[in-house]
């Protein structure tokens, strides 16, 4: 019943794509090639509330997925080939983290996974990525804003990875085996992302008048979303209380200290810009997002939604 890409044997020599189909286990929507957590101990530790664990993993997974997509939009658009590759590498790391985290969320509480038509080959993490509405996403708003220039990408990756690395350093001791393992792996990757962005931050700040003014403009534009990263959502408080998650408020001091090191090296003062308010106090973690996320999802999800039984 699944739609499938087929080439007849006589066409194979003609098609540049036929080689790609020899091994049908490529990582793409609908291929259902493997459970990313196959063989991983996904039992819920004693005393842990499964829906809380799932909601918490979903937040971290949505941060990764949305940020990954924005960074991936840089592919073929970066100022130099090396940075094009670097940004693609960063997006790929985040996508890998998203896949594990969304799979973990689905394993902990199947009821959060959107129902798909019978016969859909989409694994749970794909169902979560492609079949939820914007208001169901729990990512911080920093991840979703529309891309600007390269200075903006630098500042965004810096703020995101400084914060996330501070959280994940603590998450390595999560009582949930899966989150602990994802974090232990992730800190190695995030350290590269943070150093990459921090070095470019200093380079642009100390470069030309043009590069410095663009960097300062990008910092002013994104700074209002920095405090939101350290707000404690009730899910994060509950996850932290039971030892599976981290209350982001507790890492604010260490994250600010790292950021101050970068600002000092770049000779850039802390911006004096107020935080962006939520809507009736609700922000990204509550599912309150800006229009850019809806537009991003419309593009990202369109093919999967048009072909929920598709296989390619």
């Amino acid at each position: 019943m699944t739609e499938h890409v087929h080439t007849s044997p006589e066409d194979e020599h003609e098609s540049a794509y036929s080689g790609l189909l020899v091994n049908d286990a490529h990582w793409a929507f609908g291929t259902d090639f493997e459970d990313p957590l196959a063989g991983v101990d996904t039992t819920i530790p004693e005393g842990i509330d499964a829906p809380t664990l799932a909601a918490y993993a979903l937040m971290l997974g949505d941060d990764s997925l949305v940020m990954s997509h924005r960074i991936a939009e840089w592919t073929s658009n970066a100022p130099e080939l090396e940075d094009d590759i670097a940004l693609s590498n960063i997006a790929l790391d985040l996508l890998g983290q998203a896949r594990l985290l969304l799979a973990r969320a689905a394993k902990a509480d199947e009821s959060i996974v959107p129902a798909l038509p019978d016969g859909s080959p989409a694994p749970p993490e794909d169902a979560l990525a492609f079949f939820r509405e914007a208001h169901e996403f729990r990512n911080v708003r920093l991840a979703e804003v529309v891309n600007g220039d390269f200075a903006e990408a630098t500042v965004r990756v810096l703020l995101f990875s400084v914060w996330r690395l501070a959280v994940w350093e603590q998450l390595r001791t999560s009582r949930d085996h899966v989150l602990a393992a994802v974090a232990a792996k992730g800190v190695k990757e995030l350290a590269y992302h943070r150093d990459y962005a921090a070095r470019w931050f200093v380079t642009l700040a100390q470069g030309t008048d043009e590069s410095r003014s663009r960097l300062l403009a990008a910092l002013d534009a994104l700074w209002p979303l920095w405090p939101e990263l350290f707000d404690t959502h009730p899910v994060e408080a509950a996850a932290a209380g039971s030892g599976v998650g981290v209350d982001p408020a507790t890492v604010r001091e260490s994250a600010e200290a790292v950021l101050d090191q970068v600002l000092a090296a770049a000779d850039v003062p802390r911006p004096e810009v107020a935080r962006r308010a939520g809507v009736l106090g609700r922000t990204g973690r509550d599912g309150m997002h800006g229009e850019p996320l809806s537009r991003m999802l419309a593009e990202m999800q369109s093919v999967a939604r048009a072909h929920p039984k598709g296989l390619w």
């Binding site: 286990a25 990582w27 090639f33 493997e34 196959a38 063989g39 991983v40 085996h177």
Partner: peptide, 29 residues
Amino acid sequence: MAAMRDDLVRELTGAGFDRVEVRVSLDPA
């Protein structure tokens, strides 16, 4: 990862093992 898994399954099955299970171990990284 998927290609590794496929290759392991193919080679071991080819060597006469009836059932091949590939598990992912995340810890230690």
